[in-house]
């Protein structure tokens, strides 16, 4: 059971994660995203095989990132949300309880996105994801394999960047100064990288077509991606939990959608 999330069909999983991701954008209260975040956390811990240590090394930096971002947000809350008493004043800003609440809500919402994202990334093989898009969503094989062919080059970019840095140092290029210098610098790195990438794109495409690839749908599938009952259960669970959260939030009178307090 602990590897359930890994076994879920990648396309279904993506949908199961996108729907809550989009719907969470509606809420501006604290309760709703907090409860859903806890839910995603429980799913990650109990139903996936992501080791907690690995998960937290990914998640923790984002918490800092979001925290620093929310601080800035706190200062610019619009009047709709400026309810409550003034907590403290700072230069020309007034921080109210309403402002703090909405800042926390938005931060929690972002954390939800990240937790959902990690649940997907850490349990999904990128090749299988693409193959599933082709088999379930009828994405054209030409696009599927074209994208996979490009994705393969990801590890080579970093290596090439290192070599470029060394080669430029040999030529005596000092660190760029000013905007002009930075644009030049940007060009000196991007042109060789992109030029090489474009040549490779052409060669890979030739090699693929030389192996009889036509881009048509008439091909067999070594990895058969299927959708089973388990996948529907997962989808129902992820979306159902969100709806349930919305409902209880409404019931207790927390729910806030675009500044409208419900219940």
């Amino acid at each position: 059971m602990s590897s359930m999330v890994s076994a879920v069909n990648p396309t279904v999983k993506a949908i199961a994660i996108l729907i809550p991701g989009v719907l969470l954008g509606l809420t501006f209260d604290i309760y709703t995203p907090l409860v859903y975040l806890l839910f995603v956390f429980v799913v990650t811990l109990w139903l996936s095989d992501i080791p907690f240590k690995r998960w937290i090394t990914f998640f923790a930096p984002f918490v800092l990132f979001i925290a620093s971002f929310s601080w800035a947000r706190l200062l610019y809350t619009s009047d709709t949300f400026q309810g409550g008493s003034v907590l403290f004043s700072f230069w020309t800003f007034e921080v109210t309880t309403g402002g703090v609440a909405v800042a926390i809500s938005l931060a929690l919402r972002s954390l939800c996105f990240i937790a959902l994202s990690l649940l997907f990334i850490l349990t999904t093989d990128s090749t299988k994801f693409m193959l599933s898009l082709m088999q379930q969503l009828k994405l054209s094989p030409k696009i599927t394999y074209g994208v996979l062919a490009g994705y393969r080059f990801l590890p080579t970019f970093k290596h090439e960047l290192d070599v470029l840095r060394q080669a430029h140092r040999i030529r005596g290029v000092s660190r760029a100064k000013g905007i002009r210098g930075r644009i030049q610098q940007f060009k000196r790195y991007s042109i060789p990288l992109l030029a090489n990438a474009i040549r490779k794109a052409e060669r890979v495409a030739n090699a693929m077509e030389s192996k009889g690839f036509t881009g048509e749908r008439d091909r067999t599938h070594y990895h058969m991606m299927t959708v089973t009952k388990r996948d529907w259960i997962f989808l129902g669970m992820m979306v159902g939990a969100l709806l349930l959260t919305f409902a209880t939030s409404y019931y207790f009178g927390y729910l806030n959608i675009f500044g409208h307090q419900f219940g």
Binding site: S68, A201, V204, A205, F213
Partner: peptide
């Protein structure tokens, strides 16, 4: 053409790296 799709993909991969680096730059500006 297949080579155009692979090109889009490679550009996508190359710029994904650049985009990610830009996040750090943006955070610095903030």
């Amino acid at each position: 053409k297949l080579k155009e799709i692979v090109l889009m993909s490679i550009l996508g991969v190359a710029f994904a790296v650049i985009y990610l680096l830009a996040f750090g730059l943006g955070q610095g500006l903030v």
